[in-house]
Simulated assay, not measured.
Amino acid sequence: MRIGILNSGGDCPGLNAVIHGVVGAASKLGMEVIGFRDGFEGLLPPADYVQLDPEDTVGIMKLGGTILGTTNKSHFASRLGTDDLKEIAEQVVTLTRETLRELDICALIVVGGDGSLGTALHLYNAGIPVIGVPKTIDNDLQATAMTFGFDSAVSCVVDALDRLHTTAVSHKRVMVVEVMGRSAGWIALWGGIAGGANIVLIPEIEFNLEKVAACIKERESKGNHSTMIVVAEGASLPDGDLITKDECGNSVRLGGIGEVIADRISTLTGKETRACTLGHLQRGGEPTSLDRILGARFGVKAVELAHGKRFGRMVSYQSYYVSSVTIEEAVDKVRKVDPEGQVVHTARAIGICLGD
């Protein structure tokens, strides 16, 4: 049996651990692995791929990024069709089917986030044997309690806060750190708690800048002359606006709220305020041990699903156990922070202001 694997969407710490797990588990079962380069694009003629043997994955678990490459801009970009179902051009599906048939591939493992898994679902519905592996630093897929890459992203936030804290104290400044996460506040909340932030602003909790300013002034009155603020890129301003930036091709992406918050806080408090956007630092670098282990476990489970011909399913992590759900259950269902949940309660209990 020969299986294929590809990485799609943004890069993420732990992708190579998944590849390592897939190749290792497949080899034990006497299966061959074909790795497609640059995401779904590698499936299009002339197919761009490489055969992966166990010796090819020695030492890759510690590497950030992916040895196969990835892209989030391709011919497979899905669009909304009838009944709001995501569709891909039929010609692209046909070419994909031909590539897999020519290479005698019996299963295709797709490692990606919500958008990539939406594409995987479309391919499965078109008769292509697909297995999904959830990948996103945002940790916002409903069908799994955790995704690999999240822990590494949080560690990056914690390291940044540790470093910025010393300069904030030295200059008696307010530091605003903008982090990734799209419409979910997991990275901001977890990173803020672990990194000792004083204020955390997330999309799930409506915040008021006057209350944020009051918190800073109260700290000042108690002799705490510096304040650390973490804000999620997808948090809305009090007027409901999302801050976005234009990219080439007139597309937009989230980003820039940190600068806006810093300017307004400076005006409201009179304190020197600086903003720092971590951006793609959160995606790069070595994965943490947790992400390496989780990635490898996901890869092994994906191979087991392929070997058992349980196609159309996605690997899922719940209650410390790796199982699976249908891909259909996983896509388009964002898992957000529960404003009344235990993690938010923890933040409030240790004195973190959430701006409300």
Rank of each mutant, 00 (worst) to 15 (best):
L68F: 00
I193W: 02
D138Q: 09
V18C: 14
D104W: 09
H171A: 03
G69N: 02
G270V: 02
D83V: 03
S152L: 07
E272K: 05
V154A: 08
Y124A: 13
A306N: 04
L43P: 05
K222D: 11
L209I: 06
L6F: 08
L29D: 12
V303I: 10
E55T: 01
E340P: 10
G113V: 08
A275Y: 09
T70Y: 07
V92N: 13
I187E: 13
E286Y: 04
G223T: 07
E87G: 15
K271H: 12
K172E: 14
E328F: 05
Q342G: 00
V230R: 04
A47K: 00
G185M: 06
N139W: 04
I34W: 04
L95N: 07
T346M: 14
C248M: 09
M146N: 14
R37Y: 09
V230A: 06
T147I: 14
G223A: 00
M180L: 06
Q282Y: 05
L44H: 07
V23E: 14
Y124M: 07
A77G: 14
G81I: 12
H75S: 15
G341E: 06
R101M: 12
H75E: 10
A184K: 04
P339I: 01
G249R: 01
G234L: 01
G195T: 12
A349H: 03
L278S: 11
R292C: 12
R348P: 04
E206P: 01
S324H: 09
E272C: 04
M175G: 00
V231Y: 07
D140E: 05
L117M: 10
T166P: 03
G35R: 01
L80N: 01
L43F: 13
I205Y: 10
N125A: 08
A160E: 13
S323N: 08
K245A: 15
F40Q: 15
K309M: 13
N208V: 07
P339V: 08
L117P: 03
A17G: 00
F311E: 05
V110G: 15
L281I: 02
G4V: 01
G42E: 07
L103T: 01
C156T: 11
E220P: 03
A126V: 02
H225Y: 10
L209T: 12
D263E: 15
S170R: 00
E41M: 15
I19Q: 02
S74T: 08
G35P: 02
I34L: 09
R101I: 01
K172M: 03
T167C: 10
I205W: 02
T227K: 02
N7W: 01
L117N: 04
L15W: 06
L29W: 07
A77F: 15
V179F: 11
G149K: 00
R253A: 09
G196P: 00
P287R: 00
S152T: 08
G113L: 00
G195V: 12
G10D: 11
E32A: 12
S155N: 14
G351N: 12
R297L: 11
D53Q: 06
R182D: 10
G64T: 08
A235R: 05
G118W: 06
M314N: 07
H75L: 10
V50L: 11
G351V: 05
S78E: 11
M228F: 10
V230C: 11
V337H: 03
L63C: 09
K333Q: 07
G4W: 08
E210K: 09
L164I: 09
T273S: 11
I3W: 15
P134M: 06
